[in-house]
Write a protein that binds this DNA or RNA. Structure first.
Lengths: 200, 200
DNA sequence: TATCTAATGACAGTTCACCCTCACTTTTCG
DNA sequence: CGAAAAGTGAGGGTGAACTGTCATTAGATA
């Protein structure tokens, strides 16, 4: 069973993170010092750095990649890739309870707001391309390091990135319709570009 | 005509940038202080900040987006979008003199190497999506802010991003073949995914 | 040449993230 | 219970990016 010690650590960690995010949201990432966070969480500055090696690490989180990937795997192979992606994204986010959707939005806004965090996002993108390439490789029975597979993964992540920017720029609109707009429009656009006739 | 003053300013600016990049390459971005750069360029630290408001700004550069975009515009409309992108990228980079190709590689490595620069790259990606969306919108006669158009632009930029990572991870291979591998493989992959038969 | 203006350097100062050490408290476990 | 181990706070310290001031120098101008 989990000892008292571990429980307390988890509590402290959560408290620091909670207060940090609250302060970031309230006054911005750059305008929030580690001191303030520590004070708000009622720990010393040293303790903050014991839990989070750097200030930006406090933003790190359970990732959605894995969720999205699961949904992607559930898509029937051989279908239209854009529609598959669309269905996967949609399933992932619409099934999210509203509270978590809101949290996700705030996290996205945050990640795009300050340079150190944008750098973090870049890391996540790189990782996501890797993970997605892995999944694609399985489905296509190709190598995960195949540049073409990685390029395909990159394309998907690029679409995702454009959705992120859209989320930032349209604070009102809900996640579902943003995804819909982007993916449906993408399908039409690609169709027009390649000379295919759009399917709807 | 340009006075002596302006010429000197341009000179100083170039000198700072040249030495900065040299030092970054030699000892890494994070291990290079503004002091060192200033000393190498034989100016005072204050002068450095007069020319470049922040340390990362010294990395900013003439962008390649515009070049790539020009090539993209030259592609025949209605063709396969992947092949069009491929041709455009290829044209842009293979026509680059070797010296500039090397410079470009180094710049890419640099941009991916340190957090503040990755943040900068993220900004460039956002801008690039915007510019590309604009170009796509013209070609498709749609709105540049259409989420679908932006998603398509995002996909292209995502492919480009995957090429950037590939460049970082394969320091040996030349730019042309990296681009070829990625784009040809992408075409095949998309074909397989969507159930189309690949074209080659 | 004489004056006006823009660019520079010297330098002191600030702010923060991050580091280190050491004494103290709290939990664990024999 | 008593010793060992883990977690914490206090506080001093560092490095480096940036800021602001002011005197000096170099270039433009009449």
């Amino acid at each position: 069973m989990t000892g008292l010690r571990e429980r307390k650590k988890a509590q402290t960690r959560a408290a620091i993170q909670r207060h940090a995010l609250r302060l970031f949201r309230k006054q911005g990432y750059e305008n929030t010092t580690v001191q303030q966070i520590a004070a708000a969480a009622d720990v010393s500055e040293s303790t903050f750095f014991r839990y989070f090696p750097t200030k930006e690490d406090v933003v790190l989180w359970d990732e959605f990649d894995t969720l999205i990937l699961e949904r992607l795997r559930e898509q029937p192979p051989g279908g239209d890739p854009i529609q598959g992606l669309h269905a996967a994204l949609r399933a992932t986010f619409t099934e999210l309870p509203p509270a978590e959707q809101k949290q996700l939005r705030e996290r996205i806004d945050l990640l795009l707001s300050a340079p150190p965090l944008r750098a973090l996002l870049m890391d996540e993108l790189e990782r996501a391309i890797g993970v997605l390439a892995q999944a694609l490789a399985e489905r296509l029975d190709r190598d995960a390091n195949d540049p073409g597979v990685r390029a395909a993964a990159g394309a998907v992540i690029g679409v995702w990135l454009s959705v992120l920017f859209a989320i930032k720029d349209n604070p009102k609109t809900d996640l579902g319709s943003l995804i819909d707009d982007a993916l449906v429009g993408l399908d039409i656009g690609v169709g027009q570009l390649s000379g295919r006739r759009s399917k709807r």
